[in-house]
């Protein structure tokens, strides 16, 4: 199908973008890679009065190493981050998670920030951001604010972004050691995950995160020596949800079986 008509605006700077967003507000959609937005427009699941295309703003196409944080601009594509030479050292969890994001062709255009803005509950990058305790930088004419991942991602496809705000970048905490693991279950590689599980090994604890079990990624810190029991207890608490791909009970079972392996892998990699 084809999208309904919309105005097309391609600002050259962040300032112009923010001014346009102040004018259009929620009637406009920000177009970066378009790998989620354009399918939804084509299928007429959504419509927009205007598209504001930020994909060619050079100031947003930047990966910057700020020591304890890696900041990724809103026009940086997933494949560009995947090809960043320091990725495995600085953001090992992203190095493990990014190959699961869509397909090669979608990652060529799809952006890191766009995936986080889209806030699909089972998608990989929001889970990685939540697990690492990252931040989202939002800019509007009213000023700039920085939100923690857990305050940003509210529910399924719902975030704390106001209609006049532009996500200019996301910040991932850098290099917390190599003890990370990421696995997901999908019908085929590159499909939306049914559930995704990620873990970061700390000193005597493991931070464990799961996507596809609720409207947003869930994160819990568990003791390393009681991991199996903690996972089983958490699996019993989780409600899950049912969709075309899996029942809530199947999701819980997948988590129960997958999470211990992911935790074990993270601990093994840490040593």
């Amino acid at each position: 199908m084809k999208p309904r008509p919309f105005d097309y605006l391609r600002p050259d700077t962040i300032e112009e973008t923010v001014a346009l967003l102040a004018e259009y507000g929620e009637d406009a959609r920000v177009l970066a890679g378009g790998q989620s937005l354009v399918p939804m427009l084509n299928l007429r699941l959504i419509e927009a009065d205007a598209l504001i295309d930020i994909s060619q703003i050079a100031a947003l196409d930047v990966i910057s190493d700020r020591g304890d944080k890696i900041e990724i601009g809103a026009a940086v594509t997933q494949n560009r981050l995947l090809a960043w030479p320091q990725l495995a050292e600085k953001l090992p969890l992203l190095a493990a998670a990014l190959p699961h994001v869509g397909h090669f062709q979608a990652r060529n255009r799809g952006t890191v920030c766009g995936s986080i803005a889209h806030a699909d509950p089972s998608s990989e990058l929001p889970l990685a951001l939540a697990l690492l305790g990252g931040e989202i930088v939002l800019k509007s004419k009213r000023g700039e604010r920085v939100l923690a991942a857990q305050d940003f991602h509210k529910d399924m496809l719902t975030t704390a972004r106001a209609g006049d705000e532009l996500i200019t970048s996301v910040r991932f905490p850098a290099g917390k050691g190599a003890g990370v693991a990421f696995r997901e279950v999908a019908r085929r590689h590159g499909d939306f995950a049914i559930i995704a599980v990620a873990a970061v090994a700390e000193d005597k604890h493991v931070r464990l995160g799961v996507g596809g079990m609720a409207g947003r990624p869930l994160v819990r810190r568990i003791a390393m020596n009681e991991a199996v029991a903690a996972i089983a207890a958490w699996a019993d608490e989780l409600e899950g949800y049912e969709d075309l791909h899996a029942s809530a009970a199947m999701r819980r079972d997948l988590f129960r079986n997958l999470a211990p392996r992911v935790v074990e892998e993270a601990i093994r990699c840490a040593v």
Binding site: L51, A106, N108, R109
Partner: peptide, 10 residues
């Protein structure tokens, strides 16, 4: 030079 879905590009 970059492989792209032309149906997801304007």
């Amino acid at each position: 030079g970059v492989a792209t879905r032309s149906c997801l590009t304007l």
